[in-house]
């Protein structure tokens, strides 16, 4: 009998866990949808601002902008975008693995800015050179965060503390598939445009150098903003998938335990029957 009660208790507790995982899955799914919309809506700006810069850069005799200038400094600054919370499958650990791979190659020349509590905890314990760790990612909007990161990263680059700045984030492909990627942020790189002639008759007011001076920082900020949006959306996707499989796992366990429970109950009944029957037999004899 003790065994029966034990199994019943376990089934109940797993049902409760399942309720939680199912709720988390629903929440993640709802947020995922909104985050996905935000990515799509933010795309035209990133695309157009890049196009505009490429137009301006075709103008002859533009002084080389400090954000574009290549540096001989071998030091690399890496912006790592992780999450504040777990329960999202291998979303965070994949980011860690990628950063460790880069750190293996860069060695002493690498310093980190970390977004997300999980990443801050992980790398904080492992002796990496961390310049800044933002542990409460979820309390500020991606826009605010992008501005803050843009200011500190460009300051670090312009003061020649580092020669290059890169970002490791999780690219959102679909709810089921996310990919960790690393891209260069600084110095900014642009493809040469095929049709430079048609930009010669542009009128600039103020002159192109001054405009570039204002547009390039904005572009960098919009790049960081995009990475933050992608990572956030990926996290919701990963959490939804993880919680979905957790819910299904608990379904499996519950059905296995129910079977066990029924078998045990059956065995107990049979045992009692045998006892009754054999008792009756003994009295008869």
């Amino acid at each position: 009998m003790a065994q029966l009660r034990e199994i019943r208790r376990r089934i109940r507790s797993i049902r409760k866990t399942q309720q939680v995982t199912r709720a988390m899955k629903m929440v993640a799914a709802a947020r995922l949808r909104r985050a996905q919309e935000a990515i799509v809506l933010a795309r035209p700006y990133a695309f157009k601002i890049r196009q505009m810069i490429e137009h301006i850069l075709t103008y002859p005799d533009i002084p080389e902008h400090p954000l574009i200038r290549a540096s001989a400094n071998p030091a690399v600054h890496l912006l790592v975008i992780s999450g504040d919370r777990g329960l999202c499958g291998n979303y965070n650990s994949q980011v860690f693995r990628e950063v460790e791979r880069i750190a293996g190659k860069a060695g002493r020349n690498l310093e980190l800015t970390i977004v997300g509590r999980k990443g801050a905890d992980y790398f904080g314990k492992r002796g990496y050179a961390i310049r800044e760790a933002i542990r409460d990612r979820d309390t500020s909007t991606p826009g605010e965060l992008a501005r803050r990161l843009f200011l500190s990263l460009s300051e670090r680059f312009l003061s020649e503390g580092v020669g290059r700045v890169a970002v490791t984030y999780t690219e959102f492909k679909s709810a089921l598939s996310q990919k960790v990627v690393t891209e260069w942020l600084l110095p900014l790189a642009f493809d040469p445009v095929d049709t430079p002639i048609h930009c010669l008759d542009y009128i600039f007011d103020p002159d192109p150098g001054v405009i570039l001076d204002k547009v390039l920082p904005r572009y960098l900020q919009s790049q960081i903003f995009r990475c933050l949006l992608e990572s956030r959306t990926s996290e919701f996707g990963a959490r939804m998938t993880a919680m979905d499989s957790a819910t299904r796992n608990s379904d499996d366990i519950i059905s296995r335990l129910t079977l066990q429970y029924n078998q045990a109950r059956q065995a107990a009944i049979t045992k009692e029957l045998i006892e009754v029957v054999s008792g009756a037999e003994a009295l008869k004899g």
Partner: peptide, 19 residues
């Protein structure tokens, strides 16, 4: 509201970039 104050644009304007 451009860099130097308000500017008006009609169709056929020359290529122009400003803040």
């Amino acid at each position: 509201p451009a860099y130097d104050g308000y500017m008006g644009f009609l169709p056929g304007h020359a290529p122009f970039v400003s803040t």
